[in-house]
Nucleic acid binder design. Structure first.
Length: 336
DNA sequence: AACACCGCCAACCGCTCCGGT
DNA sequence: AACCGGAGCGGTTGGCGGTGT
């Protein structure tokens, strides 16, 4: 952690810079930012920093909001299920923390990144040392366990394409499904991710947040009072919180060779648009998830863990399609 | 009690991407 | 096409607190 005050170096520097605070956020600053976000909504971060009366750069405000103040953040230790998901997703996505975080409602990329670097990485390393099994094989949690990479590697291109086409033609991406999932939780419980239904503000603004919690969802566009509906995605012109509450689709990726490490990704805005457009048009998928808690993912994929480690080569394929199925992780339970 | 070591994690930094002009 | 500013991402830093000696 950084010291709440200036880091010393450029104290004598220009006025503007020297006015900007760095380091830890005080409860007062948190309250200012939170109050501003609730009343005004998200916008240009540098404006937010200025208008909220914070001596912070916009970047710092953004980070504070995303990593700490956001009302939908889950706190506390990672559950074994979450760990499992992180490990699996990391085996596919690599260090693309934001995308991994998008699959774990209430968790931030920073949180996951820290967790990975401090805990999971070492654990997997130790596992590797203790046995010749790959991390993907090391989990002996029974039928729930899913060997994602092993499964993918065994798939031929046709299977993948079919799967991906299915995923797109069924109109509902995993991001949409998770949005629906999250939306449903919000519908029954405005702050399902907060421990004990209480936003635990370590810096001391808890009471304030208790009072503001209900207003927050309304202000950021989560609640439609007219219809009693809670929306999972927000209007982009009002606020960009949509990206926080809904789960953006994973980017299309191309995979070559047999490496399980991440490959440089190709941004696919077309896909994103597609998923955005289709996101809330179909709820069947969501209902399917709810009713498929006991489904073994291998069954969903239509294959088992065959030929793990064998060489494979795939052309362009839609990771989103793949991830959609991964989002079926039967052991996933985001309820707190 | 004092010190050293280590892990966690909040926050910063630098970079890339993207949209606007 | 080039430039600029803002947003977002991943890597890294460094302070705090816990634990061991």
């Amino acid at each position: 952690m950084r010291k709440p005050d200036m880091m010393g170096k450029d104290k004598i520097n220009n006025n503007i810079k020297s006015k900007l605070r760095k380091g830890l956020w005080s409860p007062e600053e948190d309250e200012k930012l939170l109050r501003y976000m609730i009343t005004k909504g998200q916008g240009c971060w540098s404006d937010i920093a200025r208008n909220a009366g914070l001596q912070r750069c916009g970047k710092s405000c953004r980070l504070r909001w995303i990593n700490y103040l956001r009302p939908d953040l889950k706190r506390g230790a990672f559950s074994p299920q979450e760990e499992e998901v992180i490990i699996h997703l990391h085996s596919i996505l690599g260090n693309r923390w934001s995308q991994i975080a998008a699959r774990l409602p209430g968790r931030t990329d920073n949180e996951i990144k820290n967790f990975w670097n401090s805990t999971l990485k070492k654990r997997l390393k130790m596992n590797n040392n203790n046995s010749t099994l790959s991390p993907n094989n090391s989990d002996s949690s029974g039928p729930k366990d899913v060997n994602v990479m092993g499964g993918i590697m065994s798939m031929n291109e046709h299977d993948l394409m079919t799967m991906c086409m299915d995923s797109s033609s069924s109109t509902s991406s995993s991001s949409c499904m998770q949005s629906m999932h999250a939306t449903n939780m919000v519908l029954t419980n405005p702050f399902p991710l907060l421990p004990n239904n209480r936003y635990d503000m370590m810096t001391g603004a808890t009471g304030f947040l208790d009072n503001m919690a209900a207003a927050c969802l309304t202000q950021v566009g989560m609640v439609d009072h007219d219809h009693g509906v809670v929306h999972g995605t927000l209007e982009p012109n009002k606020t960009r919180l949509g990206s926080d509450f809904s789960l953006p689709p994973l980017e299309s990726r191309s995979i070559e060779d047999n490496s399980s490490t991440p490959i440089d990704h190709v941004k696919s805005h077309n896909n994103n648009n597609h998923f955005k457009n289709s996101c809330f048009n179909n709820t069947d998928h969501y209902h399917h998830i709810q009713s498929s808690n006991n489904v073994v993912v291998e069954d969903l994929f239509g294959f088992g863990n065959h030929g793990q480690g064998e060489n494979f080569r795939m052309g362009e394929w839609d990771l989103e399609g793949l991830m959609q199925d991964i989002s079926y992780f039967p052991s996933l339970d985001f309820q707190v």
